[in-house]
Write a protein that binds this DNA or RNA. Structure first.
Lengths: 199, 199
DNA sequence: CGAGTGATTGACTTAGATCAATGACCGTGG
DNA sequence: CCACGGTCATTGATCTAAGTCAATCACTCG
């Protein structure tokens, strides 16, 4: 029996994808090494890092479950950052050459791949917009407006409120307070893991 | 004589791109209308908007010079937001059907397009990371580390400092003060439009 | 020349971060 | 089974970095 299909992962790639498990802190690739693969995070999280001369690490991006990373390695001969698992993670490793070929040969797949990248782009752009809002309540409202379903902008929280706070660029304390205040003011409703605008 | 080639715009698309000029406030497409085109911003800026029931506008994204927008319309039958020029702008309009076909038929172009999306994704992801840093100085440092060239992370400012402040999610006053402080502390150097880490 | 904008600095206010404590809710191992 | 250690959720009391309001100077453009 095969493992369940990873959501968000194009089926055409399954054939050439190799599962990889790694422990927290494990190195996945290093700056300057040849770009052999593109990766997909099934569970866990991977940080893309660059280092200042003082040795401080600069996080370019933290890839989380359901995300690809190092897609740009498709058109670059070498990785330009380090990738390190920040938690125990399950990845799918896709050889860059295979993906490149598929992209060139299989027009249908090319469309799928473009759609996938475009969707991610859309999501992360709206996150940028959200993060550049000034107030905590503004950000929550923006989140609901963008990600919520239906007329009440209902959304079911995937992870914990702490995770959400991180996503919104807030401390968890501030998020708790903000949600409490918004509920008090009759702006939102909360039940278990469900968030929505109040009627 | 033709206008200069827009940077960042795949040459294969030039044939089917139609130049469009629009005034500030002009509507480019509306929510629910069929997705006829993908757009590229040559100059100016375009906001992608969604509206709450109270009529408040929620900015999903502001596309600026050198960016595509509505790429996701390639795999969706209708636009899911409004697009409005926030300044007088010059756009290139690319029929979605043409792009779709090209993507399917021309493997070489498919690679280029994937590379373009991947690059944008990388950039905007690092912006997210930057915006989730707490301090103003941290953000400036991150910007230099990510976008700067050479060992001193030198970068030449494209626009004004006010624009940069907006990019960093700061008020211009705060950016001025932060840069002044960092220069005073010998962290960075500034000459005209050039920013770099101090030796 | 006057209007408009960018750059800069000062004084004041505030939203959010920080530090801290508490209760609920696991899962785990003795 | 229950006690213990861990994490999440929550609230309170400060503290501070950044936002806001305001003024000035330099520049450019019509």
């Amino acid at each position: 029996m095969s493992s369940p299909k990873p959501r968000g992962f194009p089926s055409a790639l399954l054939a050439c994808a190799v599962p990889v498990s790694c422990a927290a802190g494990a190195n996945i690739f290093r700056t300057g090494s040849p770009t052999h693969s593109v990766f997909f995070v099934q569970t866990g999280a991977v940080r893309l890092l660059r280092f200042g001369r003082a040795g401080e690490e600069v996080v370019l991006h933290e890839a989380r479950a359901g995300e690809f990373f190092a897609e740009a390695s498709l058109d670059s001969p070498r990785y330009h950052c380090d990738a390190v698992a920040s938690e125990p993670s399950e990845l799918l490793q896709v050889p860059a050459a295979a993906l490149r070929d598929l992209l060139e040969v299989d027009g249908d797949f090319a469309r799928q791949w473009a759609a996938l990248l475009a969707r991610q782009l859309r999501d992360v752009r709206s996150r940028v917009e959200r993060l550049s809002l000034k107030g905590a309540a503004e950000r929550v409202r923006h989140l609901l407006a963008c990600e919520g379903r239906g007329p009440r902008c209902e959304m079911v929280l995937e992870g914990t409120l702490k995770d959400l706070a991180r996503d919104l660029g807030l401390t968890h304390e501030t998020l708790y307070r903000t949600l409490a205040a918004m509920e008090r003011d009759g702006v939102i409703e909360r039940h278990e893991k469900v968030l929505r605008l109040a009627k």
